[in-house]
Write a protein that binds this DNA or RNA. Structure first.
Length: 305
DNA sequence: ATGCCATCTTCTAGATGA
C-alpha cells in the first residue's frame, strides 16, 4: 500500500511523489488549513515559525518578507517542519515571498507588477486537482508599503505602490475572462487596511499611508476585478475591529492596540462555500522577538466546491 | 498623532518598514 504523505498524522514523512502529475494518484485531505504570515525575516524567525507550525499545523503556509535569497532560505528547517513542497521567490535583504505546503504545488508565475524587479508575488497551483472540479490557484502577495507621503508625485515609493495596485487590477481583470473556471485564493500582506474598523483610528489614519482613501479605492478596484470575497470579513463582521499588524514602536501593543488589518485572505466567488473558519493568531505577536504581523489562519473545505 | 523599534547590509550608519 502506498504511503500517504499528506495526512496530518504523518505530516513529518517526506513526500515520495516525484512530480505534480503523479501526485494526483494520491488523495490529499480536502480540509485545508491555510496561513498567511509576514514574518519579517525568515532567518530571524525560523524558531517562531516552527513553534507556530507545531501549534496550528497548517497545510499550506504563505510567507512574506522572507528577506533572503533563495540560496539563503532555511530549507532544512522548513523540511523538518513537515513541508515537503516549497516554492520561493526571494531576493537579497528585502521583501521576498515563499509558499510552503504539505500537498504538492505547481509553480505558475511571479509577476513584477510595479516593474521594480522586486520579489513580491508568487502564484502556485495546489495539487488537489482531481478532487476538486477545478484547479485551485494560490497567489501570495507582498504589496509595496509605499513610504511615508501619500503623494505619487512627491514620493516614488507611493507611486510604486499605486502602480502595483493598478497592475494587479489589470491582471485580474484579464484573468477573470481567461480563467473563469478556476478556483482562486489570494493571500498576503497587501499593506492596506480598507475598512474603518481595520485601523485603531479611522480619523487619525486618513492621511497615513495604508489607510488613505486613494489606496483604499485602488484596493477596492483590485477586489472588484475578480469579484474577490474578503474571507476575513466574511467570518468577522465589518463592525468588529480586526487587526493583523501592530507596530514595534508601541511599548505594550496589546494595551494600546493601535493595530491595522494589513494582511488579507481573498477567495474567488466559486470558493465561497469552502470558507469554514478564520482567525488572527494574535498569540504569535506576544512571543519573544516577534514579527510585527500576526499569522492569519483560514480553514477551507474543498469538498464543498 | 506619534511611537522610537526592528530588520537588512558595501555592517557600528543608513535605508527600509508602515
Amino acid at each position: 500500500m502506498l504511503s500517504y504523505p499528506f495526512s496530518r498524522t504523518t505530516q513529518n514523512s517526506q513526500p515520495s511523489i516525484p512530480n505534480f502529475k503523479a501526485s494526483y494518484q494520491v488523495l490529499p485531505p480536502m480540509k485545508i488549513k491555510l496561513v498567511t504570515w509576514n514574518v519579517n525575516s525568515i532567518r530571524t524567525r525560523v524558531d517562531l515559525i516552527a513553534r507556530f507550525v507545531e501549534a496550528e499545523k497548517p497545510d499550506i503556509f504563505c510567507l512574506q518578507e522572507i528577506k533572503c535569497t533563495n540560496d539563503q532560505f532555511p530549507h532544512q528547517a522548513v523540511s523538518e517542519m513537515g513541508f515537503g513542497h516549497t516554492e520561493i521567490q526571494g531576493q537579497k535583504a528585502y521583501h521576498g515571498v515563499a509558499t510552503l505546503s504539505k500537498v504538492p504545488l505547481k509553480r505558475l508565475d511571479c509577476h513584477d507588477f510595479d516593474g521594480t524587479g522586486q520579489a513580491r508575488h508568487l502564484a502556485v497551483e495546489i495539487g488537489i486537482g482531481t478532487r476538486t472540479k477545478k484547479p485551485v490557484v494560490l497567489h501570495n502577495f507582498y504589496v509595496p508599503a509605499g513610504g511615508d507621503v501619500a503623494d505619487e508625485d512627491e514620493n516614488p515609493k507611493f507611486k510604486c505602490k499605486m502602480t502595483y495596485l493598478r497592475e494587479m487590477e489589470k491582471h485580474f481583470t484579464k484573468i477573470a475572462k481567461k480563467d473563469a473556471d478556476h478556483h482562486k485564493i489570494l493571500v498576503g500582506d497587501l499593506n492596506i487596511a480598507p475598512l474603518e474598523t481595520d485601523v485603531w483610528s479611522h480619523k487619525q489614519l486618513l492621511k497615513v499611508v495604508s489607510h488613505t482613501p486613494v489606496e483604499v479605492e485602488a484596493l477596492g478596484k483590485v477586489q472588484q476585478s475578480y469579484n474577490w470575497l474578503d474571507m476575513m470579513r466574511h467570518h468577522i463582521p465589518p463592525e468588529e475591529r480586526l487587526y493583523s499588524w501592530w507596530s514595534y514602536r508601541s511599548k505594550d501593543w496589546r494595551k494600546n492596540n493601535r493595530g491595522r488589518r494589513l494582511d488579507h485572505i481573498w477567495l474567488s466567488p466559486t470558493m465561497k462555500p469552502a470558507s469554514q473558519a478564520l482567525k488572527v493568531y494574535e498569540t504569535a505577536r506576544d512571543w519573544t522577538r516577534p514579527s510585527d504581523h500576526a499569522p492569519v489562519i483560514a480553514e477551507l473545505d474543498l469538498d464543498l466546491v
